[in-house]
């Protein structure tokens, strides 16, 4: 007669589509929090990278578990390409902002207001 002391529930023992989706949801919320709350522009950029990564996890997870197949992989690749272009452009803009205002805090760069 055998019995397990710590019976692992079924939904925990077999990672499926929902597990990956929940991870991507957590990453999405953390990225959103970084975008909304941090003052430093570069922290906002890191938040955007987290958002794009969470979207990519969704694409790849749906590719694995549904009939989306390789199309989703290609979409994820194009998202990565866009993220690379966006990071380069954004950092060039950040460098210009730093030269103009000698700060990279988003709340202090407000010349266009007024």
């Amino acid at each position: 007669m055998t019995y397990c002391i710590a019976q692992i529930p079924q939904w925990l023992a077999e990672p499926g589509l929902t597990h990956f989706l929940v991870i991507s949801a957590i990453l999405f919320s953390l990225g959103l929090l970084a975008v909304l709350t941090r003052r430093n522009v570069i922290m906002v950029l890191m938040g955007i990278e987290l958002l794009l990564n969470s979207a990519n996890i969704n694409f790849i997870a749906f590719a694995r578990y549904t009939t989306l197949a390789l199309d989703a992989h290609l979409i994820a690749l194009f998202v990565i390409i866009l993220a690379a272009a966006e990071a380069a452009i954004a950092l060039a803009i950040v460098l210009n902002i730093y030269q103009q205002f000698s700060t990279v805090n988003v709340d202090e760069v407000s010349t266009l207001r007024e």
Partner: peptide, 8 residues
């Protein structure tokens, strides 16, 4: 990103 941090 690390370059951006270092430069700004």
């Amino acid at each position: 990103i690390i370059f951006g941090v270092m430069l700004t």
